[in-house]
């Protein structure tokens, strides 16, 4: 549903001339292909890390400590001689599953709230929107920290905390999409041809409003990876020696002056994954 649907845009309905930007996007998009490739590779890291590296992520070879990147150690080694690339590969599962949990929490709770508010309206709408206002008013990181205090440290708890922070975004978007679709002529036409509320909701409103929500989910996936690595960096996520990406960077911090690879390379992996997730979200969002 991602790449192909764009091409079927009606030529007759589009304004006589699209801007060159819009036109350019109809062709093949190498950036998008690359983005999917990055996500695919990182997913593979998470599922079958041993296919990518033969070394141990937890125990190192002290003699080989703090070596710069080389063919033997792609990303170099850390202070106790562990291969950094191996640690990054084995860390993928923590970041990805954490992001998955976070997005699921936000998506399920937020969309449910938003769809309820949008389709029921009235008091329900008012209450939900106030809840959303409150969630928005507390900065994401502080909200996450408050929840972590409640739930305790750890990967899953950090992920849930991040997910709660994204509820507001999902609720707002899904509500406004539901409201938009509900006002459309084709929904009225469906009522006009005898459809009942639940039929209209499931046949027309939800399918047409959730596309945008999927796009947001991809975006939030990237944001969740960032947020989880931030919590890991601050020490509220997985405990050492877990090779969680944020924690890896935190550990490398002490060697900033001498061993640049310890911070730079894991960070670049995070940037690449987040960038790819955003790129995919962008493409999904355009399909509306």
């Amino acid at each position: 549903m991602s790449a192909t649907a764009v091409e079927t845009r009606p030529s007759s309905s589009a304004p006589q001339f699209a801007t060159d930007g819009r036109r350019r996007l109809r062709g093949i998009r190498p950036g998008l292909v690359l983005a999917w490739l990055v996500i695919a590779v990182v997913l593979a890291w998470a599922v079958v890390p041993w296919l990518f590296t033969g070394q141990d992520p937890i125990s190192g070879v002290p003699a080989e400590k703090l070596q710069a990147p080389s063919l033997a150690h792609l990303f170099g080694t850390d202070a106790i001689g562990r291969d950094l690339f191996t640690r990054v590969v084995y860390g993928a599962v923590h970041s990805l599953s954490g992001a998955l949990v976070a997005v699921t929490v936000g998506l399920v709770v937020g969309t449910l709230l938003g769809v309820l508010a949008g389709s029921l309206g009235g008091v329900v709408d008012a209450i939900v929107m106030r809840i959303v206002d409150v969630l928005l008013s507390i900065p994401g990181l502080l909200l996450a920290l408050s929840i972590i205090i409640l739930l305790g440290f750890g990967t899953v708890n950090a992920a849930i905390a991040v997910g709660v922070g994204s509820i507001a975004a999902f609720a707002r978007l899904s509500r406004s999409e539901v409201v938009r679709v509900r006002q459309s002529d084709y929904v009225e036409a469906a009522f006009g041809s005898g459809a009942r509320l639940h039929t209209v909701l499931f046949r027309h409103v939800l399918p047409n409003s959730l596309t945008a929500v999927i796009g947001l989910a991809a975006l939030q996936f990237g944001a969740a990876i960032l947020a989880i690595s931030t919590l890991g960096f601050l020490g509220y996520g997985a405990p050492p020696p877990t090779p969680e990406w944020g924690l890896l960077i935190a550990e490398g911090r002490n060697y900033v002056a001498t061993s640049w690879w310890l911070t730079v390379l894991p960070g670049l992996v995070v940037v690449a994954v987040v960038l790819s997730a955003n790129r995919i979200s962008h493409a999904l969002g355009r399909n509306r």
Binding site: D185, Y186, A189, A190, S193, G194, H204, N208
Partner: peptide
């Protein structure tokens, strides 16, 4: 039955022509 002014807004973009036309019967 009502026919709307804007045929771009009055048909569900995700349904096929046949589904759209048969929907009243289905309802």
């Amino acid at each position: 039955q009502l026919v709307y002014q804007n045929p771009f807004a009055s048909l569900d973009p995700r349904q096929s022509v046949q589904e759209i036309i048969a929907e009243p019967l289905r309802n």
